[in-house]
Amino acid sequence: MSEVPRFWRESKHRYRLVGTRCENCGNLYFPPRDICPTCRRESINKMKEEELSGEGEVYSYTVVHDGLEQFKMQVPYIIAIIKTKEGPLITGQIVDCNPDDVKIGSQVKSTLRKVRTEGKSGIIQYGYKFILK
């Protein structure tokens, strides 16, 4: 099944790290939420889009040696949880470095990369990854 419709709906947050901030309690969410889990009904129509800076630090990470067929070209690759400057934790790949270069607390910034392609003729999915600063 093609993932085109789902991917298209999510492109704004995948391309530019657009999250949502609840104007009721001030919490920022990424990925974006339609409703604030804290304020619930009170947050209706009060969720405002906000672009994250893409800057943050490595909160935790793992090195993947046995990846999916799609990612064979990139093995070994690094999947990390990034604590963004604005607060939300984001899971993403760290690229353009060796696994040895990454440490807990390493400063990173986001970059737009190809995430996957649907075969030879399908859509190219782009999204955020991270690079060491």
């Binding site: 690229v95 990369r113 190809k114 190219i124 782009y126």
Partner: peptide, 13 residues
């Protein structure tokens, strides 16, 4: 270019 870079990603940066 890295394996995940192309003209779109380079243009965006």
């Amino acid at each position: 270019p890295g394996p995940d870079e192309d003209v779109l990603t380079i243009s965006a940066e």
